[in-house]
Computed example of a mutant assay.
Amino acid sequence: MKSPQIKKLLKLTLTVCLITIAFGCKSAKSIIASGEASNQLSAKQVIKQHQENSADFKTMQAKVRIDLIQGQKEQGLTFNFRMEKNKVIWLSAPLGLARMMITPDKVRFYNKQDNQYFDGNYELLSDFVGVDLDFTKVQNILLGQAIYDLKDEPHKVAVNENSYALQPRDQKALIELFYLINPSHFKMDSLQLFQQLKRRMLQVDYASYQEVKNQVLPQNIRIIAQDNSDEVAITMEFKSVSLNNEVRFPFKIPKGYEEIIIK
């Protein structure tokens, strides 16, 4: 991993992988967004509805189809996904050829095809994305929730193509952040984060949602991460979810593997 270009692309791919470990549903029903955004709703009212509609569950398991597009290359695979809310997110390729597990303290994965592994924290990803990334923010993105606590600072709202366009009243000089909130279920339609000076962009679009045991969860997501001219896009189709069952998170880095170190 000596080439700076390879390092940059690996950072980009790792970032996108972490924020796209998503989920779908078995015996779920798609939600038809029939609500209409109203100019009469204040930013505080939109925030209240968004927070009240946060998904409530203990565990989740699913199969998720993830397609990665990087330049002219496209590849896809169906993974097993498991989550214990606020504690563990786990992803496994068929036959255990690759696994990823993230916790509030660790980011870990290994790849049996390349005999390599990564064992680190969120510092690398936080530096790349340009925000203080942690487990909670990753989890919130997966659940269609805002990455920051919306009550921490004043926001303003406007109607934009039948979504509530929510943004901090005082945008930071280095980072611009926008949320588009759906008027039907008040989950995110889109998260958009821009760093103009560094030419970085992160966009998460929620094409559709579904209802699983009275919980509203993302059904189709597209994520785009851009660093200068380098871009990675991931699309996901979520299937076969079950909630609140007992789940295990087997993870052990095989001996003799080469550690991936990015400086």
Rank of each mutant, 00 (worst) to 15 (best):
K87W: 11
Q139L: 03
Q210W: 12
P218L: 00
Y164I: 01
V138G: 02
K198A: 14
L174Y: 14
H50F: 08
V88M: 09
E161A: 00
F238T: 04
V129F: 11
L143Q: 07
G71S: 15
V88L: 13
Y164K: 09
N80M: 11
G256E: 12
S242P: 15
D67P: 00
I47K: 09
E258N: 07
S42K: 12
M188R: 11
L142N: 09
M101L: 03
V46C: 14
I234P: 01
F135T: 05
Q167N: 11
F251E: 04
F249R: 02
D189M: 08
L202T: 09
T136P: 13
D149F: 12
P4G: 11
L77C: 13
Q195I: 04
A165V: 07
K112R: 07
I102C: 07
K11R: 13
I66D: 02
N115K: 05
Q145D: 08
R99N: 06
V46D: 04
I181H: 09
V247K: 00
S240T: 07
S92N: 10
A146I: 02
L177G: 10
L243P: 12
N115D: 06
S27Y: 12
I6W: 15
L174R: 10
Q192D: 11
V232S: 05
L77I: 08
I69G: 03
P4M: 12
M101Y: 02
Q5S: 12
D205W: 02
D105R: 08
G24M: 04
F109K: 06
F194W: 04
K198C: 05
R99V: 01
D189F: 13
Y122R: 10
R108D: 08
T15Q: 01
V107D: 03
G76P: 04
T235R: 03
T103G: 11
V241F: 09
S240E: 11
Q51R: 14
L166I: 13
K252D: 08
H185C: 00
I224K: 14
S184K: 14
A233W: 00
F178E: 12
G144L: 07
N220M: 06
D170I: 04
F194N: 06
